[in-house]
Design a protein around this nucleic acid. Structure first.
Lengths: 349, 349
DNA sequence: ACTGTGCGTTGGAACGATCCAGGACCGAGC
DNA sequence: GCTCGGTCCTGGATCGTTCCAACGCACAGT
């Protein structure tokens, strides 16, 4: 009952555990238990404390809790600049779902980016700082393409993190991951075109050193081969830019005479639409096109671009599940989750 | 020199201020000063402490610092779901720049969203929780359209925040804001079309209760009127969707025979492109079109959509400047900053 | 009556930083 | 020689929470 603070201060300072304790006539620890382990309290005590909490509008101070529990209840999410001139803006849906799922699990999402030195962006110091200053409990890493050092670095450091994307280059990586079955997506797109009567279906994908690109390509060739449709001369591998897609499709049209294109990205598919527009061909009517990611570009471009839509909302949910397993008590072995995309059919096919 | 912690623990626990102090042979407070007020130290002491810091790889514990200073060094940024089927994804550039500028000012960005109850999303409880639990120091609010209660609520609560967008509905709002001169943007677009020889230039914008939309419309009519070009019958006001843009442009083409369209958004402009495609007209060749926001859609759609590009990077920089003024010592009066966009010309005009 | 066994609750210590009041030291001034 | 003022540094208290050891109490077992 000691007056540990001058009265009248409550108008500027939020109420603390001690204030609630005094009002409810219990000790601080009991209030703490009421918040974190209600089961430990007798029913009448619990309700008395809860009423005091409600009356004062008490909410635990995060900094104090974080200090004591050695946890920040924050999840670090690195963001890269969206490339200009591409259709890639899929992070939006993912981020939003990640924020929602995280909140339900008691976490918030902290954004950060690497420091730019000249042109190259080095992200590792940023990870390091956040870890060492205990600013975040874990990371979500979204790029696990070949040669990306972050996942490996974090693994070595035994820093908790979950990857969106398989550990392509590291078969015995220990961290949890969630990914989307890209091959299944392109296979759906290709099968869809075959069912529409197409047989000469071209592939425009990424350079061979992109394992992600090779996987998507595998979906196309699997669908073709399972119906004994030849694929030779129908595949092209280029950079992920609109102009590359435009040039590749022009060459393919001249040399292989396809009636449809399956692309590894919406960006490449937009390149195909450029070629068609230049030649006075109509997408969907004369030549069919499918993309990948169901970007806003795919949704709005006339006549609508058929595209493979990744279940980013579900990915985020799985990522948070994995994070909970990582940070919670049970040392669960979370191997990896593979989700299946779906095809959104629009006017371009 | 007291052994305040069991040895061997340093391998798992990051070094603390006390560790650095012991190694450098100074008190904790001196280390703290070396980090926060280097001027107070004698030169040789400072370098000795700095060396100890470097050797141990010390970084201040965020939670402890936050607890003591009653600040989280976090800035809350609410995110809304990007609407499907529109071209609006402009947050990407803004967020990235905000993260970068914030880091330079010593802050990180915390994402949050409202809790969905049924269909409506109520964000105010989320703001309230973050404030009361001292999880963030300030907010950045990005939607200040009419009827948005957040800015007003925060103002009343005297919570520190900066708005991206003018306080349209509250002339005597006290908070700092940063905005882009939309009228200047549409005026540039319209003038550009006039210089290309167009005289019948139509406007497709938003419903009248959108002050933001009315401002953009004013830029169009200002450019027209300053050259004595009549505007009657050439304006349309609809919802911000692709289909609305398509329908509005179809009606305008039939009734007013414009040779060019200035649109309040890329989404509406895409609607125009749909109409043109349906009628076998060529954007840029037969009919000129301009959009607003320079979205990825504008950048990738054939033949390229001329669009007004907001200086989002600069907006973020100004927002952080305002935040620093708000949270720093000097109670600066930061009235409001208005930036000018620029026109990115592409094939559609 | 005496000892164990839970349950519900308690007060002190700790997390790691900063705030604050004051101490050691040194040269200047009378 | 003594005080004074300033610079540089120190040790204790504190922020608000959770961890930890232990305590009072009611009840069951020998």
């Amino acid at each position: 009952m000691s007056v540990s603070r001058p009265s009248g201060r409550s108008s500027v300072t939020p109420p603390t555990l001690a204030d609630v304790a005094e009002r409810a006539g219990v000790s601080r620890q009991t209030v703490s238990n009421a918040v974190n382990n209600p089961d430990l309290l007798r029913e009448d005590t619990l309700s008395r404390v809860q009423q005091a909490i409600a009356e004062l509008g008490y909410l635990p101070n995060r900094a104090a809790r974080n200090l004591r529990t050695r946890a920040s209840h924050l999840i670090g999410l690195p963001i890269k600049a969206a490339e200009e001139g591409t259709a890639n803006a899929l992070m939006d849906r993912f981020v939003h779902s990640l924020v929602d799922s995280s909140r339900e699990a008691g976490y918030h999402v902290l954004l950060f980016s690497g420091t730019r030195t000249g042109k190259a962006v080095d992200e590792l110091p940023a990870y390091d700082d956040l870890l060492r200053s205990t600013a975040v409990d874990a990371f979500v890493v979204t790029d696990t393409y070949l040669g990306n050092p972050q996942a490996e670095w974090l693994d070595q450091r035994r820093a908790p993190f979950v990857a969106f994307g398989r550990p392509w280059n590291d078969p015995d990586a220990r961290h949890p991951w969630v990914d989307v079955d890209g091959a299944a997506g392109t296979e759906m797109a290709t099968t869809h075109l075959i069912e529409r009567g197409h047989t000469r279906i071209a592939w425009i994908g990424w350079r061979k050193d992109s394992l992600l690109g090779e996987e998507r390509r595998a979906g196309w060739s699997r669908a073709m081969r399972s119906r004994d449709i030849p694929t030779s001369g129908l595949a092209s591998r280029v950079e992920d830019t609109v102009s590359s897609g435009r040039e590749a499709s022009a060459v393919l049209l001249d040399e292989a005479h396809p009636s449809a294109f399956v692309c590894a990205s919406d960006t490449l598919a937009m390149g195909v639409l450029h070629t068609l527009a230049e030649r006075g061909l109509s997408a969907g009517h004369d030549i069919a096109v499918t993309g990948f990611d169901d970007s806003q570009v795919a949704q709005t471009v006339p006549p609508g671009l058929t595209s493979v839509r990744q279940p980013l909302e579900d990915v985020a949910v799985e990522v948070v599940k994995a994070l909970e397993g990582l940070l919670g008590a049970p040392p669960t072995v979370h191997p990896g989750v593979l989700l299946t995309p779906r095809l959104v059919v629009r006017g371009s096919s």
